[in-house]
Design a protein around this nucleic acid. Structure first.
Lengths: 228, 228
DNA sequence: CGGGATCCCCCGAGATACTG
DNA sequence: CAGTATCTCGGGGGATCCCG
């Protein structure tokens, strides 16, 4: 059983061979937000050893999940970009992220929220909430720690992306702690969240209830005990 | 960043901390089929070192995904069983298994099909095929290598389980090689599969087309190249 | 005989330094 | 900026041993 293989003709085993190594899924999470340079990845994955990042990118390239491209034009930086095969991973990684988020309660000491994590959280939360069906497009900007992401709700579609939006209808700043996560779980009402200072909103504050209904992260009731 | 942690308040990072270690997802795959004893797990995971299996079970117990129970009655064997929290993993593991299966072409040298892998494959394939909507319940038995599993199709519901079924309507024996997988992908017609000897059927052979429509495993068209 | 524990070896991850 | 080189060390692989 050399190195990564499991010796089973099984989809889950093959997936585990490709994704089960340390840092690999988080690298893909970041690249699925958009093409990134080596230093972008290193900055978005605090604590990753540089040799491990280099090794993982090489493996992902050999596995056909990432391509390495010299960006055209005067800019001669190298960018890493996901392949179509890696994009097919989105449903699976989102399901894993949703499951993991359902078990999250409070941030551990020193844990940070990165931009890719915030974008992924918005995308996953959009799938767990009530389909919006708004008449006109609504844009949100969310800030948590150093991270900034935006979401555009148009019809029943929600798209999440990194960074600011030029003219958000509502901006939400999440204070550190479990408050924002509880609001997304529905265990803390949006109004109480504002009243208790766990979030600060600016813009069209009437949209906050709409936001809380559109974006929902599951909250596992069963964190212990045997299955029924 | 000791050992398993990633230092990010992110659902995917938390999931990776719990599941990202070697063998962990395959252990859960086996336990999600049903409670298993230590020796059952060891037999179903050929190549796993015994100390790693013991360590993983201990971690899974501490993480609240597995409980260790002394089976009642005269039998004093210990069984491991998943918790409700682990059962919530089924959609995510199935999505991963589906993605991994979409990239599988031919078995590698020495790869085996275990019982848990076959049951999982049937469950995943049932979600990828056409909803059956049969009038009466239909039962299938599938054999691949040493593994045996069965599926019961009733209305629009499909349940997959390990081992034989007392009175299957159709029994399918898959010869080793990529043939059965190609039939499930739809790239090899059921009739050709029989004609070429990649499967052998017994029972109500008219049900084979029904089987091939009900169970479908995706076949990724993009095994290389950058995303569109 | 089921359910592990123990031992040794070595690969791979973590940390740091350095270079094209 | 984008990695490579080098070192250490913990954890996985493999075999064997042990205990109720």
């Amino acid at each position: 059983m050399r190195t990564r293989e499991y010796g089973q003709f099984c989809g889950l085993a093959r997936a585990a061979e490709l994704l089960g190594q340390r840092w690999t899924m988080l690298i893909l999470r970041d690249l699925l937000v958009g093409p990134r340079r080596y230093s972008d990845l290193a900055a978005g994955l605090p604590g990753i050893p540089t040799n491990v990042l280099a090794a993982r990118l090489k493996e992902l390239e050999q596995d056909g999940l990432v391509v390495r491209q010299a960006r055209g034009g005067g800019d001669r930086a190298i960018v890493y970009q996901v392949t179509g095969r890696a994009e097919e991973l989105v449903p699976a990684l989102d399901a894993l992220a949703s499951w993991g988020a359902a078990g999250m309660r409070v941030p551990r000491e020193g844990e940070v929220v990165t931009e890719a994590a915030l974008v992924t959280a918005l995308r996953v939360a959009a799938a767990g909430g009530r389909p919006p069906g708004v008449r006109r497009a609504v844009t949100y900007v969310v800030r948590a720690g150093e991270a900034v992401a935006h979401a555009i709700v148009s019809g029943t579609r929600v798209t999440a992306g990194p960074g600011e939006h030029p003219a958000p209808d509502l901006t939400i700043v999440a204070r550190s702690g479990p408050g924002f996560r509880e609001m997304l779980a529905g265990t803390l009402g949006a109004d109480e969240a504002v009243a208790e200072g766990v979030i600060e909103v600016s813009g069209d504050k009437a949209l906050l209830a709409e936001f809380a209904a559109t974006f929902r992260v599951p909250y596992s009731p069963s964190l212990t005990g045997p299955a029924a």
